[in-house]
Simulated assay, not measured.
Amino acid sequence: MSTPTHHIFRIGAVSKATGIPVSTLRIWETRYGAFSPVKTEGKQRMFEELDVSKAILLKQLSSEGHAISAIAGLDVNQLRSLSNLQNSTHLKPRAQDEPVTLAVVGLSLANRIESKKFASGLMHNRIKVTGVLVDMEAASHASFGEVPHVLLVKVNSLQTSVHSCIQTLIQKHQFAQTIVIYNFAPEAVVQAMKFSGLIVRREPISDLDLAELLQSVAFVDKKRAQEFGTSGAVIAGRKYSDDTLMRVASISTNVLCECPRHVAELIAQLASFEEYSQECLNKNSEDAHLHAYLRSISGSARSLFENALEKIAQHEGIDLLEGKK
């Protein structure tokens, strides 16, 4: 798991990050008690990352008509709940207009997504942050009243332990899609995460690219849920390695139409195309909707054919565990 990093900001940096004048931040602090920054010996105000989150939410809510005197004393979770409640009253009643719900691991990333600058890159799509976790440790103990569509994780270093923790979260909560943003990682870990169905992007990634990635993935997952008659559960990672599929394809059986060979070859081809679409989505924000759609369809088809292969293997007495990925 990642170790939480506590960033400290001067008031000028908070002003630049949030678009709130320094004079306003000082009034919110001194008159309304919105913040309790640590002051250095030189009387410099030092704010934590959580203060930046709060400032962003206070700005949004005050611009929507809430009196700063009434909301300054609320904590970040209370402010976020109030913001989500207010946003929900502005939504149209049709299902396709519902916002995409998002759980974010990492305060700095949550601050980016909740900013007005980030929202400008979402065009007509709405992203609703329903949960913010400080780090993977907090995420592992989190509970959600309603499971968000997307889990978005930001870590500095990707290691096998982080991958394992994320997989546990997915199995527990069944997010429709998981996106991981990282700074440094061994290539083997990155490839393993992509193999298991995660979207993995390396920093730096611009707000516009991240917004495009979120809306394209979320759009596809809701469409896929309708097309396949499901509740939007995540596409399962690959069950069988290329070696296993080659072994099955070469086995002689009593099935006259050679179903094991055909199905194994189809799975291998779909998995290859799924990986190709994943790479397009990871490397290029252009046509992101199309790449996400192709990845979703190929992944769903691959998963269905894997289920079919298991039925064939059971009928033919083929051991799929040998060489299983």
Results as ranks from 00 to 15, higher is better:
103 A>E: 12
109 L>W: 00
109 L>E: 03
111 N>L: 01
113 I>N: 00
114 E>Q: 07
114 E>H: 07
118 F>Y: 12
118 F>E: 08
120 S>W: 07
121 G>N: 13
123 M>P: 00
125 N>K: 13
126 R>V: 13
127 I>L: 13
135 D>I: 04
136 M>P: 03
139 A>W: 04
139 A>K: 06
139 A>L: 13
140 S>K: 10
141 H>G: 10
145 G>F: 08
145 G>R: 05
151 L>R: 05
153 V>W: 01
157 S>T: 04
160 T>C: 07
161 S>W: 02
163 H>C: 09
167 Q>Y: 08
168 T>I: 11
169 L>Y: 10
169 L>A: 09
170 I>R: 15
174 Q>N: 15
177 Q>T: 04
178 T>I: 03
181 I>D: 04
182 Y>M: 01
185 A>Y: 03
188 A>F: 05
190 V>K: 01
190 V>F: 01
196 S>M: 04
198 L>H: 14
200 V>D: 01
201 R>N: 14
205 I>W: 00
205 I>R: 02
205 I>S: 00
206 S>K: 11
207 D>P: 00
207 D>T: 02
207 D>R: 01
208 L>I: 10
210 L>G: 00
212 E>L: 10
212 E>H: 10
213 L>P: 04
217 V>M: 13
218 A>T: 08
219 F>Q: 11
220 V>Q: 14
220 V>I: 08
223 K>E: 10
224 R>V: 09
224 R>P: 02
225 A>H: 13
227 E>R: 09
229 G>E: 12
231 S>M: 12
232 G>R: 06
